[in-house]
């Protein structure tokens, strides 16, 4: 379902009239990969679109379940829908003119490069620790910049969630004290990590812009 577009094309830029100057321009047209459209991926995508990102690759093989609604950007009437498609639908309700490339598949080392081909940066938004490590290793190995998350479960203070740059091509968000997700996940901590990811991607792409213009 595509939301109704009934205003002239130019009016959509009004969405960004209260943005910090230059942010929409830094994100416009840049292809950004989102690996996993759960708690992190769905909230991240919303933040990116609100800042002006308009070219996203959304990857998730799962369907929406009731237990997702405690933290993921979906609605009760979307239960049973494929996450990647439902997220595209929700994002287009914010900005109807964005481009989303949806892949309802599981990512592995052999399909990864073709799925994220042309992406300036990929966000790791998986749930399982092993899946996170595997994806980050594969992407960093291929020289693709990654913004990953580790350490958002439990109910510790969200102030502990920080942004670190442990190795080249990796920005890592999380706290060092967080338990595994078996202890449960709450919306504020997951949303804050996703918002940090959005900020880190914006900052990374803005710095790229700056370096381009310095040359």
């Amino acid at each position: 379902m595509n939301p109704k577009i009934n205003s002239p094309l130019d009016n959509f830029e009004e969405i960004f009239s209260r943005n910090v100057s230059g942010i929409r321009a830094a994100l416009r047209g840049k292809k950004i990969g989102i690996a996993g459209c759960g708690g992190l991926g769905s909230n991240l995508a919303v933040n990116l679109v609100r800042m002006g990102a308009d070219n996203l690759v959304l990857v998730d093989s799962d369907k929406i379940e009731p237990s997702n609604l405690n933290r993921q950007y979906y609605f009760w009437d979307q239960i049973g829908s494929l996450k990647a498609k439902a997220l595209e639908e929700n994002l287009k309700r914010i900005h109807p003119l964005i481009t989303c490339e949806c892949h309802s598949v599981r990512i592995n080392s052999s399909n990864l490069q073709s799925i994220f081909s042309g992406c300036e940066v990929v966000a790791e938004c998986f749930d399982g620790a092993g899946d996170k490590a595997r994806l980050v290793e594969d992407l960093v190995n291929k020289g693709i910049p990654v913004v990953a998350v580790s350490g958002v479960a439990g109910k510790n203070s969200a102030e502990a969630i920080k942004i670190k740059r442990p190795i080249k091509n990796l920005i890592l968000i999380g706290d060092d004290a967080s338990p595994d997700c078996s202890e449960g996940l709450i919306s504020p901590r997951v949303s804050i990590a996703a918002a940090h990811q959005a900020w880190a991607i914006m900052n990374f792409l803005s710095e790229g812009e700056k370096n381009e213009s310095d040359r």
Partner: peptide
């Protein structure tokens, strides 16, 4: 060595 340990949750 830099060893980055991941924990689940997302």
């Amino acid at each position: 060595l830099e060893i980055i340990k991941f924990v689940g949750g997302g």
